[in-house]
Design a protein around this nucleic acid. Sequence first.
DNA 1: CGATTTTGACCCGCGC
DNA 2: GCGCGGGTCAAAATCG
Length: 251
Amino acid sequence: MSSPAAGESSEVVNNPTTPNSSISSSSNEGGNSKKSSKDGKNRLKEEGEDGARLKAKKTKGQKRQREPRFAFMTKSEVDHLDDGYRWRKYGQKAVKNSPYPRSYYRCTSAGCGVKKRVERSSDDTSIVVTTYEGQHTHPSPITPRSGGSLLSGGGIGHLFADPAFRDHHQSVLPLHHHYNQQHHHQQQQQQLQNAYMYNSAPSLNITTTTTTSATSAASFLRDNGLLQDMVTCQMMGKVVEPKEEEEEQRF
DNA sequence: CGATTTTGACCCGCGC
DNA sequence: GCGCGGGTCAAAATCG
């Protein structure tokens, strides 16, 4: 429904508006995840009743949105990347300029307000953009071997450290390679597209350019210490303007 | 039966 | 001030 996105697709060309639009708006409800009772829906039906209008804004002028956001693109046929955590889908919205909808997932673990956003690239249907928001405050529900998965703080660290995640990625990559036989002449070697990292700073964003393999991406992140704490990005203090596109198409 | 997904409606922030 | 876009919730439906 909604916008077959017929002619607009061409508009994208080689400029990945995806990353930019992904986090363009502040969004994020911050700490008030528990909206408490009535929301809009109820209000419409019963309305009145209490008069306690939804949400307790509070926090004076302090801007919320404190959770670090981490977005990265992955080449995979499946949108459901098992990172070792249980996710519950709580919403789906159609993305502009994209025939594919964006899915919103939330960690089912109690006390864990980590959110995940899965969106498919409008240009390359084989590319899935996954955005993680927040950090897991609990060990993965599954993953039998808790070898080194137990990182302090959890969050992205777990994600990449999780064998399941890597395994899945690796499985996916080669799979795509085969599947992509149509234009294999363009990209013969499978590789992780790009990894975009965003932190609380609106204007601050780091763009990582493609690596040779998924493992390299993980290593890269780990090397930068991002795995431990995404907030580290703040130390840069350097405002990096939104790089238009980073398309690394070699051919 | 429970958990999860699906789908529509509503709210919020921002742009014009 | 209104409209648009994005994000979230909640009830119903579905799956295990």
